[in-house]
Design a protein around this nucleic acid. Structure first.
Length: 426
RNA sequence: GGAGAGGUGGCUGAGUGGUCUAAAGCGCGGGUUUGCUAAACCCGUGACCGGGAAACUGGUCCGCAGGUUCGAAUCCUGUCCUCUCCGCCA
């Protein structure tokens, strides 16, 4: 979230940003509540001061009668304080509720507008392929090659779940390893993270665990939820930590399963593996000094491009428009891979996404650092990026590498990891 | 799951009802000494919310939430977390 004082002092700027983001956060109400908060704060402080004075005077009272009178006075003051304090707490609660709905500021160069305003800024090295036969979509390919079992998934867990089978399993493991090899070489600390996290951590990273539109599965009778991405666990890793400047940037990556309710998302684009309730993802995460985060965002984007260039899959990079950024992101680049089986004649479909969340998550999570020779601490910036989301990468690989004979060639970079060059019908 | 111990500043750790305005050490900042570095010594060092042009000043904070009391780091209740041992288990 944003700093309360910052919002108060820059109300117009924040309002303008909310408008660009399509957020209806009520800044005017926040301002009014804060003015009340301030008055109430003064009242509580004054009552406390007097009560403290009374307490101190009791030791010096000259007789029992005076001591009793003073105690009475103190008791009454404490009662008044309690009343004022509870009003103050209520105001603080309301202010916090509004504050949570205010999205992060936006990068000055992020395109302004809704989804249509997003701008293509880059293409991959691999050209969009052409086929001399009608390419199939991944669902059909997977059926012929025995790679998925959607019926089995539905039987045991419902629509949106699936079994990966046979060579799809090897592909999944190969993709994990493929991504990890690059990230480890780039100095990331590899991790396998918990698939569950405390709701407090979810909220800190900007996810809303419960409610009608939540993406999140929560665990009954606990304060745990299934994570929608390892961004949650990786960001949460350093909750309430003060770092030294020379530790930054910290680059970690994590493999986790990702669970999403996908409430309200149905239709053509949801066919097969594209929109599922569970998938595996290798996620990148960084904690940086503020002045470094723009460059790290470019770096994350560059790594994503290298991964898909390495797989030989055509893609484009999108600079996401302000209306489509969600709450925490200051700027976001999406990488959309060419999926020949998508739509009538193939379409680009999102496969990765990288965001600079500036200090929006760090403030809630309490992740700060200290600069040499400076007093106080500064919130770090956090960034996240998908290295490989397995389910969508599988779609792109199968559809782009399909052959006229119904087989699928394994991308050269994965061949040693999968242990074969071609996936043939059973 | 059972039993026990514990959660205190950036870190380690003392503190069992008012003089806690939280000891001490480490770290950090400044200074003295000094070929340089280091060491030694001296001084200073928390966060948050307010008031004030400033000097300065009021309040809150000892895992979290309640309670007792004029007064709580300290007593009581609940809760979360960590550690140790036992049990169970891949």
């Amino acid at each position: 979230m944003l700093d309360r004082k910052f919002v108060i002092d820059n109300a117009d700027l924040v309002k303008q940003n909310c408008a660009r983001r399509g957020s209806r956060a009520d800044i005017d109400r926040l301002l009014a509540l804060d003015a009340q908060r301030r008055d109430r704060q003064l009242e509580v402080d004054e009552l406390n001061r007097r009560a403290n004075e009374v307490s101190k005077s009791i030791g010096k009272a000259k007789d029992a009668a005076e001591r009793e009178a003073r105690k009475n006075e103190g008791r009454q003051l404490r009662e008044q304080t309690a009343a004022a304090q509870s009003e103050l707490d209520k105001l603080l609660g309301e202010i916090d509720t509004i504050l949570r709905t205010i999205p992060n500021l936006s990068h000055p160069r992020a395109p302004v507008g809704g989804e249509d305003a997003s701008v293509e800024i880059r293409r991959g090295k691999t050209p969009v392929p052409s086929f001399d036969f009608r390419p199939l979509d991944h669902v059909e390919l997977g059926e012929r090659l025995g790679l998925f079992d959607f019926e089995g998934g539905a039987k045991v867990a419902g629509h949106g779940f699936y079994f990966l089978k046979n060579d799809a399993v090897l592909l999944e493991l190969a993709l994990q390893r493929y991504a990890l090899d690059l990230l480890i070489a780039e100095g990331f600390t590899p991790t396998i993270t918990p698939d569950l996290a405390r709701n407090e951590i979810l909220q800190g990273t900007g996810y809303i665990p419960r409610g009608p539109e939540t993406q999140i599965y929560s665990i009954a009778d606990s304060d745990l939820s299934l994570v929608a991405t390892a961004e949650i666990t990786l960001g949460g890793l350093l909750t309430d930590t003060i770092l030294e400047a020379d530790q930054l940037p910290i680059k970690v990556c994590g493999i986790s399963h990702c669970y999403r309710t996908e409430a309200g998302a149905h239709g053509r684009a949801t066919r097969g593996l594209y929109r599922v309730h569970q998938f595996t993802k290798v996620e990148m995460f960084a904690f940086t000094a503020p002045e470094a985060s723009d460059a790290i965002l470019d770096y994350f984007c560059e790594l994503e491009c290298r991964l898909f260039d390495g797989l030989g899959i055509a893609y484009r990079v999108i600079d996401t428009a302000t209306g489509d950024l969600g709450g925490p992101a200051y700027r976001k680049f999406d990488l959309e891979a060419w999926m020949p089986g998508r739509g009538e004649q193939g379409e680009f479909g999102e496969v990765t996404s990288t965001s600079n969340c500036t200090d929006y998550q760090a403030r809630r999570l309490g992740i700060r650092f200290r600069r040499k020779g400076e007093k106080g601490t500064t919130f770090v910036h956090t960034l996240n990026g998908t290295a490989i989301a397995i389910s969508r990468a599988l779609i792109a690989i199968l559809e782009n590498y399909q052959q006229a004979d119904g087989s699928v060639q394994v991308p050269a970079a994965l061949q040693p990891l999968v242990g074969k060059k071609r996936i043939a019908p059973l």
